[in-house]
Design a protein around this nucleic acid. Structure first.
Lengths: 190, 190
DNA sequence: GTCTATAGGCGGATAGAC
DNA sequence: GTCTATCCGCCTATAGAC
């Protein structure tokens, strides 16, 4: 892995964990085994490094999902796979979810537009086509939004689940969660 | 309103909008019509001010919800009201949602435990009792988590809805959203 | 392409006058 | 209880040696 990629990887980790403001160029450089000024040979400034990090993480995640969405499965199987794989990927590699959720907390219009168009639009369109086959009458925009909310929130809440009432062993099982989310998705489609 | 409360109000606004790291004591003081050192007559340091802000905003929101949850309505009516009022309150006064979501992004165990026990536990228990009356067989923990995810995410996504595919006018209507969320909640309970 | 040294600004926090 | 003045550290970013 070349230096450029090494920096992006470390930056993704730190920005995801602590957020843009809480991470210094020294932190990133240190993580990447160099000094802060060296970063400026690869990125114009901190903002550029952050943007490049977002682009890297988001596009990687998207191409991973497209494989599932363009498979030849029937609509139900595809839907189930999307839920399952999204959960798995977000659980084992939290950078995508964290960076996305941090960006969602910004209320600058152009950053939200970037998120919508560059990160979510493709997946939404693919999902829409699938839902169309299952139930053309349903409110697809609502259902897709609900699905994204489900996926993000259930993974996010995993770390504090032990502190919440009514929790059982099965809730730590991603396969069970995935099944529940898929079930309630289908029910809300009918 | 005394100075103490004035500071808390301004701090809540700024912390919610920009996050802890991105807000300086000078920013808060300026918003409250004073100079930064004056803040230290009311709060030991920035962390204390932040904690006090969280406590203020979270407890206010919780007491507002308890009124609904302890009303004498039937379970279905209560549930519908909880959804509706939560959406309304979060839409018109975003500080609670933003501070909650920012705290959820931390992965420090004790802060998550604080959130779970001081912010969510009461509401969860009340909801659990309601769900028990509707369908004792259902996975209440999952349903309640889903509901919270729904509420938070649909309000959050409101600002970028125009950029997402398949959006229609009705999606900007809180009453419609509230109905949809309640409907899918009931369906996933059956 | 990486380093040291450093500029220049902003951050949290305190001292002490009023 | 609020202010001005100030300390001191960390920040981003650049200059220039190697």
């Amino acid at each position: 892995m070349d230096t450029y990629q090494k920096i992006l990887t470390c930056a993704a980790e730190l920005f995801a964990e602590k957020g843009f403001e809480a991470v210094s160029m020294r932190d990133i450089a240190s993580q990447a085994g160099m000094r802060a000024p060296s970063l400026y040979n690869h990125f114009r400034d901190k903002q550029s490094l952050y943007q490049a990090t977002l682009h890297e993480v988001f596009s990687q995640h998207n191409t991973a999902l497209i494989g599932v969405l363009t498979s030849t499965d029937d609509p139900h199987g595809k839907l189930q796979q999307v839920v399952h794989i999204s959960l798995l990927k977000m659980a084992e590699e939290p950078n995508f979810r964290l960076l996305l959720q941090r960006e969602l907390l910004q209320n600058e219009r152009d950053r939200l537009q970037f998120l919508a168009e560059e990160v979510m639009a493709d997946t939404c369109h693919q999902l829409q086509a699938i839902l169309q086959l299952i139930n053309p009458q349903a409110d697809h925009h609502f259902v897709i939004t609900s699905l994204m909310g489900h996926l993000l929130f259930h993974v996010q809440i995993a770390q504090m689940r032990d502190f919440l009432p009514g929790v059982e062993d099965k809730h730590a099982d991603l396969a069970y969660l995935s099944q529940q989310i898929y079930d309630s998705l289908l029910k809300s489609l009918k």
